[in-house]
Simulated assay, not measured.
Amino acid sequence: MHEVIAHRHRFRALLARVQPGAAIPTAIAHPCDAVAVAAAVEAAEEGLITPIFVGPASKIGAAAQLAGVDMARFRIVDAPHSHAAAAQAVALVKRGEARLLMKGSLHTDEFMHAVCAPDGLRTDRRLSHVFLMDVPRYARLLLVTDAAINIFPTLMEKRDIVQNAIDLAHVIGVDNPKVAVLSAVETITPALPSTVDAAALCKMAERGQITGGIVDGPLAFDNAIDAAAALEKGIVSPVAGAADILVVPDLESGNMLAKQLSFLGGAEAAGIVMGAQVPIVLSSRADTPRARIASCAVAVLLAQAAKTTASALAEH
């Protein structure tokens, strides 16, 4: 079992943390191409999820045929188009018929519009995306946030982005993650607003507005991930050279960083949306099978942790 991600030990370690038991019902919004169908079926065959395919039944059937998948064993909820599919997938979660949500072959903005609708899945916490990147030349799994949802986050939105990433790190076994708030320089420079935000986030962590991790910044990318680079610049920091989480200034910089790590650094990237009522998997056609399985494994870990927390609260 789990052969798909066997040679990526960091992703394999994620899968090993999943508690054995029943697969988690997962609503897949508009899985109308072969890649989207195959991704869901791969996760089902790994015992992670029980997929519920939501979208035009004829298109899902055609995509399954292209993928060589027999759909007889899976539930299909017919929806006329992608907008309706996203809304119905969210509704399945709201009714408790699904505990995870996954994007199929529709655009991310259309998918997230249903998630963020007044009757959607938002909470008091800002939604944010976290990449979990297996970078061959880095000693640990590297979390990068937010490179997919928040375009120009405010300071308070960055607070939630940081907290979401820390919470995720705890679930995957990093008890006290080191968080590097990135900018172009390491000094507070008003002309670079990201440095001011970084300083404020550090103070928020000192005062308990961010909990569960060690936050430092501003740090340039090299100083965050390379101890020698930090030493050369005389930077004394518990985070420098050993970051678990990289917090980027905005979506553009995060998108570029994640793609550079993938296409030049040979990294593979799983991804998850945090801050909603349930974990959300944002799949991509470019994802490898290993990355798709790892994304589902992280979502399952989050769902299992939420269930454990809810049970503990109920007992008290």
Rank of each mutant, 00 (worst) to 15 (best):
Met133Gln: 14
Asp146Tyr: 03
His81Leu: 09
Ala229Phe: 03
Ala305Leu: 04
Arg290Lys: 12
Tyr138Asn: 13
Pro249Phe: 01
Val300Gly: 07
Glu315Gly: 08
Met156Gln: 14
Ile293Arg: 05
Leu219Tyr: 00
Gln65Phe: 07
Ala89Lys: 13
Leu48Pro: 00
Glu232Asn: 13
Ala294Val: 08
Asp78Leu: 10
Ala39Phe: 04
Arg75Trp: 02
Ala191Glu: 14
Pro177Ala: 05
Ser82Glu: 13
Phe131Ala: 13
Ala270Cys: 04
Val115Arg: 09
Ala79Leu: 05
Leu246Asn: 04
Ile225Phe: 00
Gly254Cys: 10
Glu232Ala: 15
Val54Asn: 01
Asn150Glu: 14
Gly212Val: 04
Leu14Gln: 00
Ser283Pro: 09
Asp175Lys: 12
Gly47Thr: 05
Asn176Gly: 09
Arg207Tyr: 09
Glu252Gly: 12
Ala16Tyr: 05
Asp287Ile: 10
Phe152Asn: 15
Gly275Val: 06
Ala117Phe: 03
Leu257Cys: 08
Tyr138Val: 03
Ser253Phe: 01
Ile24Asn: 01
Val115Thr: 09
Pro25Lys: 07
His113Asp: 11
Val54Thr: 03
Ile280Asn: 00
Ala312Arg: 15
Gln88Ser: 12
Glu268Leu: 06
Asp167Asn: 13
Gln65Tyr: 07
Ala184Tyr: 11
Leu261Ala: 09
Ala169His: 03
Ser262Phe: 02
Pro20His: 06
Gly96Cys: 11
Ala227Trp: 09
Val54Trp: 02
Ser128Thr: 14
Ala198Ile: 11
Phe53Leu: 15
Ile188Pro: 01
Val93Pro: 09
His113Leu: 10
Leu15Ile: 04
Pro153Trp: 06
Ala229His: 10
Ala148Lys: 12
Val248Leu: 09
His129Cys: 14
His113Phe: 06
Ala147Ser: 15
Gly21Lys: 06
Ile172Ala: 00
Val171Cys: 01
Asp222Ala: 07
Arg12Gly: 10
Ile245Glu: 04
Asp70Asn: 15
Ala147Pro: 07
His170Gln: 03
